[in-house]
Amino acid sequence: MELTLALAIGVLAGSGVYLILRPRTFQVIVGLSLLSYAVNLFILAMGRLRMDAAPILSGANANPADYTDPVPQALVLTAIVIGFAMTALFLVVLLAARGLTGNDHVDGTGN
C-alpha cells in the first residue's frame, strides 16, 4: 500500500519535472499540475495512511486515535485551491505571451 503510493508520487513527480523542463508553455502547465498532484499526495502521506478513519467526529467525546491526521488534509485543501488559481494565472500569462510573441516557447523566442 505504502509502496504503491510512494511509486505513484515518484511517477507523478518525475513526469512533472520532465515536463517543466520542456520548451513549450503548454508542457510546462501540464507539468506543474502533475507536480502539484505529487506534492499534495506527499503532504497527505506525511500524516501516515489510514483507511476508514476520516476526520469526521462521531460525537462530542471523540478519541483522537480513531481518526486520521487532519492537519495535512487542511494544508492540502488549501494547496488544491491555490493550485487551481496558479494554473489559471499561468494559463492567462501563457496566452498573453503567445499573443505578444507569436509563439509558445517559454522564452518567447523559439519557433
Binding site: 505504502e2 509502496l3 503510493l5 510512494a6 511509486l7 508520487i9 515518484g10 511517477v11 507523478l12 513527480a13 518525475g14 513526469s15 512533472g16 519535472v17 520532465y18 523542463l21 505529487a38 499526495l41 506527499f42 502521506a45 506525511m46 500524516g47 501516515r48 495512511l49 476526520p55 467526529l57 471523540a62 483522537p64 481518526y67 491526521d69 487532519p70 492537519v71
Partner: peptide, 29 residues
C-alpha cells in the same frame, strides 16, 4: 526527472513506513 521521481519515492516511502511523531493533530481532533 527519473532521479527526482526516485528521490520522491524513497523519501515518501521512508516517511510512510516510519512511526508518526507526536504532532499537533490531537489538539484539533
Amino acid at each position: 526527472a527519473a532521479l527526482v521521481g526516485l528521490g520522491a519515492t524513497v523519501a515518501s516511502y521512508a516517511i510512510m513506513t516510519s512511526p508518526a511523531p507526536e504532532g499537533i493533530s490531537d489538539f484539533f481532533l
